[in-house]
Design a protein around this nucleic acid. Sequence first.
DNA 1: CCTTTGATCAACCTATTGGTTGTTAACGCT
DNA 2: AGCGTTAACAACCAATAGGTTGATCAAAGG
Lengths: 120, 120
Amino acid sequence: MDSSDDGELDSAFLALADPVRRRIISRLSRGPATVNELAEPFAITKQAVSKHIQVLEQAQLVTRTRDAQRRPVHLNPARLEALTAWIGQYRLVREEQFRSLDAVLQSNAAARGTQAKESS
Amino acid sequence: MDSSDDGELDSAFLALADPVRRRIISRLSRGPATVNELAEPFAITKQAVSKHIQVLEQAQLVTRTRDAQRRPVHLNPARLEALTAWIGQYRLVREEQFRSLDAVLQSNAAARGTQAKESS
DNA sequence: CCTTTGATCAACCTATTGGTTGTTAACGCT
DNA sequence: AGCGTTAACAACCAATAGGTTGATCAAAGG
């Protein structure tokens, strides 16, 4: 359950680790758009944007349909949910995490006397 | 609001775009651990794991405290929430997205006759 | 038919990533 | 003091990512 869809998470997180691609996602959330439309706000070539879209497509964050010579790009919200699902696992442990952190700090301090933090 | 913390999102998503680092996050959700403990389940050197932790630290997904010569690594759940927050923006638009997608497909089909999808 | 528009493919360059080995620093133990 | 452990730092290497230019393909439209 943790390492089964490693590749999927890899590509999805990697795809979002770029401001251009996040911008594209943001724009697509307002509706489908073509490569040219998506490339317009950026100072890079359309080819570069096309590559970015390929990355998003491989990550299954977007899909493309054919409409004559246009290739509209559509957002695939399901993949975004998969990411929140992964992160959500660890949000659940949050309070427990704080407790255990506290416990460890205290036990360490107790075990070694008063030299807890760095002295400079 | 969208591009203000680009760098932060960059580093955070990039940090999670690696199975080793996600594994580390997963392990840290069960409590703090040292580099050696974190490195144990992996077939790579401790130095490599140390680098991964540096990446996670730069992304502020984890923090480190000093305890003598040990440097326990702790999860920082706040950063994870920042990611879900970003993704959440677009989850909100989901139903609207589906509507607009539908609208575009229909308008396209109507505008060009019946040659909607690819033929083969 | 030929041109324009939309988008991809291919080759190439540079910077960064993930990994290695080797060395060095801080601390604990006896 | 000297040894072993924990972890970081530095230099290096192979692979990949992001970007460019130039050529090509496919569909619309004169």
